[in-house]
Simulated assay, not measured.
Amino acid sequence: MPQEPMAATLGRSAAVGPFFSVRTGAGSPRDQGFLPLAELYGEGASPALRSRVDTVAMRLGTAERRVAASLVQQGLAGRLWSIALAPAVLAGRVPDLGGDALWWHPDRSTPDELWLPSPSPLGPDAEEDLTSRLRAAVLHGHLMPLHRAISAVTPISARVLWGNAASALVGTLRVLHGWCRKTGHPDAAERAVALTASLLDDDPLRDCGTLDPAVPEFSRRSCCLYYRVPGGGLCGDCVLRRPGR
């Protein structure tokens, strides 16, 4: 039996919540203000990414650009994990999120607006397991070059950025796991935990924190710096919540 089109799989995954939604279908993304994410990852500091960091800093009321850069990176990481992990869990498929294929709108946020005009699966399912395809699509395809791009915009700790990537993955897991349990898909909920644990068990995410798969919840070994935003506080998984920190 032929599989459904990838756009249909992504459409079903979007039912989990707004972070799991990605626009699909033909059109002219650049004419509507979108940029291919690959443009952020070139040599030097991307003007679009620099502008996004400055805008977020202004909205948050912080003069620390590294704080804004951290939150920009974490928000985009959450979106990337969401649109990849949900179809992997619900349909056993990972979309091809190649940097030239996936478009991002630099002026829209919470959640970042993404457009995949011609969605297709990442490789034949029989060739690689889901963890490998998720690593290829998100970690290697986006988060590693995004790490370099953010660091080119403003100096920021690698420990913070990889902690953000791990935290965003577990944040995705928690929403997806809750939705699967609520909608009567316990097997999918367990699959989500297993895939997340496998992704966290490999570099560069391995030393970023500890996952409790029974909850699921995460205790990270770094801080996203949100507490430095005026009126901000500590996130639920923050290292600063633990005694002695």
Rank of each mutant, 00 (worst) to 15 (best):
L134K: 07
P204Q: 09
G231I: 09
C235R: 06
G61P: 02
P155D: 00
P87V: 13
R220C: 11
L176E: 02
G163R: 01
L173I: 09
P111G: 07
E190P: 01
A152L: 02
G184R: 06
L80I: 00
P204R: 04
P145C: 02
G209P: 05
P124A: 12
T55N: 10
D112Q: 12
H185E: 15
H140K: 12
R79W: 00
P145D: 01
L10K: 11
A136Y: 04
G233H: 02
D100L: 11
P18M: 02
R52P: 01
S222Q: 12
R241G: 02
P47G: 01
A194V: 14
L169A: 07
R79A: 14
R148C: 08
D107W: 14
L146H: 05
R66N: 11
G25S: 01
Q74E: 15
W81L: 08
V215W: 11
A57R: 04
V239L: 13
A101E: 09
R30M: 08
F19D: 10
A126M: 03
A165I: 07
P29V: 00
E64M: 15
D54F: 05
T9Q: 14
L130T: 01
A126S: 11
Y227F: 15
T196Q: 03
T131M: 08
D201F: 06
L37H: 01
R242Y: 00
L225S: 15
G209S: 07
A88R: 04
R79M: 06
V193L: 02
L211K: 10
G231L: 09
D237I: 08
A68E: 10
G78I: 12
V56P: 02
L200S: 00
A194Q: 13
L102H: 04
N164R: 00
P18R: 12
I83P: 03
A48W: 03
